[in-house]
Every structure is written in C-alpha cells, then in structure tokens.
C-alpha cells in the first residue's frame, strides 16, 4: 500500500521539516521563468473535490503540473459524482484509469482515510470536514519559516494565537498539530460555542479575552467565520464577534512589532479583521497562498517521487486518552501509549 498524507500526524516534526526542506527547492523551481521540472513525468494525479474549493484545487493542480504530472480533475458538480455514484466507485474507476495519487477534498471528516482504504494509490487529504487540512498547515509553517528565517525549521519560542471558530475548523486542527510539533506554544481564543467541546489532551491553552494574549503573540492566526454560525445560535451576531474577537485597529496596536497575522482565506474583511489591518505588511495571507504551490509540490514529490521515508511514526501531537487496547490509527502508526 502506498503512503498517504491524511493528517499532520502522518509527518511528525521530522516529516514536516523534510517537507519544508523540499519546499525550498520547489520554491526555487517556482521562481524560474519556466517553473517546471520533470520529476513526476508519467504520474497521474486525480483531484477529487466533493466540496467547492477552487483555491485549493488550483493550488494542487499548479503543483502537479509544475512537477510534469498529468492531472485528472473532478469537481463534484460537473461529473457523475453528483449523480449518485459512490465515492468508492469513483475512486476505483479512477484507480483503474491509472491514478497514482488522489487529492481528496470532502465535507465529511475521515473521507480521505476512507479513500486510502480503497486504493493502492497515494492519498492526500485536501480537507476533510472539520478534521484536517494538512497541506494548508504545511503552507502556513513554510510561510512562517520564510518570514522568521533560520535553517532549522523550528518554531521553538514562538507563541501562536489561533482566533475564532476552532470547533468547525480543519485548518485549526492541522495547525495546532503542526505548530506544536515544531515547538510553538499555542493559545486558542474565541467564544466557548466555537471551541471544540473537549480539549483534553490538546497541547494548547484557551483564552476568551483576545486583548490579553495579543501583546505576547508572535503569530495571530485568524480563522474564517462562516455566516451560518449566527443562524445556528453559536453567536448572537457577526457584529458582536467582530467587537470581541475581530482584529480591529485598536487590537492590532496591541501586537508586538515582530507579530505576523495569518488567515487561511478567504478573509471576511470587516468581520475577522479590519480591512485596513488586512493590508498591512504583517498580514501574510498572500504569502500563504503563494507558498501553497511549492509546499504541495513537495508533498506530491515526497509521496510519489522521492522514495524518502515518511516522518517519525511517533508523530502524535494531540493526545487523546482512548485506552490502548485498540490503538487508533488516525494518530500515527506507533504502538506507544498516547498521552
């Protein structure tokens, strides 16, 4: 069975770092006038997007093409996938057509893992429900590496503050794992209705008052607030959210000079962040998008071309104490007790 990137846990710190190192090489490739290498010539990558995400899909397609791979791209609305063909049938059909890797985006947590059970091809999780979005986290880590510099690809000593709708955010789950794996301290800030119901075992602290943590923040990661959250009575109103957890001009002034502001996009200007603050130099949203391509090139190359070992199998980051008789395989292949 081929290897896959389903979760940041599949990489661990060492794996994240080797992806970062590869990303440096692919950033160089991307900067050329002909940003293409023949590394994955003859490989076929199937992009299965069961959820609208043009940005992520284009980023993966650009990455695949710059590696000279062939791309089969399926958006749910334009194919038989919307006509009731099951996920399994689609995967097996594309497998029979020679797909070497599947890039899977799906509204259901665990969908990419299911796909990996049905195929020998490599599987990349491009976002599964509220669960994970590992390549976004890798792009974010790489963006921070480029900004903070250093050869070691570590975040030791940095304090990352993740603000907003953690509960429904695959980006937050992946970034908590990635940031803490690289040594950062992570604080989650937001209303209790938007926090996961149980944070036992998460290596994070939780704070309700954003003003209190900003002076000590190296990274402020703003999560997107979906408008339906107010319909579900998770929030009284967007206005109240912005007043309490938006990065307003007043709050931006609380940040230390070294701070970096991130957002997985697309930003709701005026909701999560003041429109003017969003355009300041410390807001690296453009870099996050730009770095997505070399990072995804690195992931595809790592899975299909490099022959490199996968990351430390002891890459569990979030500790969930579920007993050890049946070790959950979603948090790494190690037999070690997870604490």
């Amino acid at each position: 069975m081929s290897r896959s990137l389903l979760s940041v846990d599949d990489l661990g710190a060492a794996g994240i770092q080797s992806i970062m190192r590869l990303s440096d090489s692919f950033a160089e490739v991307s900067s050329r006038s002909i940003p293409r290498v023949p590394a994955l010539r003859g490989k076929t990558i199937a992009a299965l997007f069961y959820e609208d995400s043009t940005r992520t899909r284009l980023s993966f397609e650009a990455a695949a093409k710059r590696l000279s791979a062939d791309v089969m791209s399926f958006a749910v609305k334009s194919s038989s996938m919307s006509k009731g063909e099951s996920l399994r049938d689609t995967v097996q059909t594309l497998g029979a057509m020679g797909a070497d890797a599947f890039v899977v985006r799906h509204a259901s947590a665990g969908a990419a893992r299911l796909v990996s059970r049905w195929t020998d091809a490599a599987v990349v999780n491009a976002g599964d429900g509220w669960h994970e979005h590992p390549t976004q986290a890798l792009a974010d880590c790489y963006t921070l590496h480029r900004r903070f510099g250093g050869a070691a690809f570590t975040m030791a000593g940095l304090h990352a503050v993740i603000v907003g709708d953690v509960k429904h955010s695959r980006v937050a789950r992946s970034n908590v794992k990635a940031f803490t794996a690289l040594g950062a301290r992570v604080t989650l800030v937001g209303p209790a209705t938007l926090m996961p119901p149980c944070l036992d075992g998460w290596p994070v602290s939780v704070e309700v008052d954003l003003d209190r943590v900003l002076p000590d923040a190296d990274i402020v990661y703003l999560l997107r607030l979906q408008s339906e959250r107010t319909d579900e009575s998770l929030l009284p109103s967007q206005r109240e959210y912005t007043a309490r957890w938006g990065l307003t001009r007043r709050r931006a002034a609380l940040l230390p000079g070294r701070a970096t502001v991130m957002h997985p996009g697309p930003m709701n200007r005026g909701v999560e962040i003041d429109p003017e603050v969003a355009d300041r130099e410390f807001c690296v949203v453009g870099d996050q998008v730009r770095n997505g391509v070399p990072v995804r090139m690195a992931v595809l190359f790592w899975l299909l071309g490099s022959g490199l070992p996968t990351g430390e199998s002891s890459g569990q980051v979030l500790a969930v104490d579920g007993g050890d008789a049946h070790q959950p395989d979603s948090i790494g292949a190690s037999d070690e007790e997870v604490r």
Partner: peptide, 15 residues
C-alpha cells in the same frame, strides 16, 4: 459521542 474523540476527529458529537 461528543467528547475528546469527537473533538479530536472533527466529527460532530452527541452529548
């Protein structure tokens, strides 16, 4: 079940 595992796995929970 809503709890540690649902929070970790990103699956909506039932308390």
């Amino acid at each position: 079940h809503e709890g540690r595992w649902s929070s970790f796995l990103g699956i909506p929970g039932i308390p």
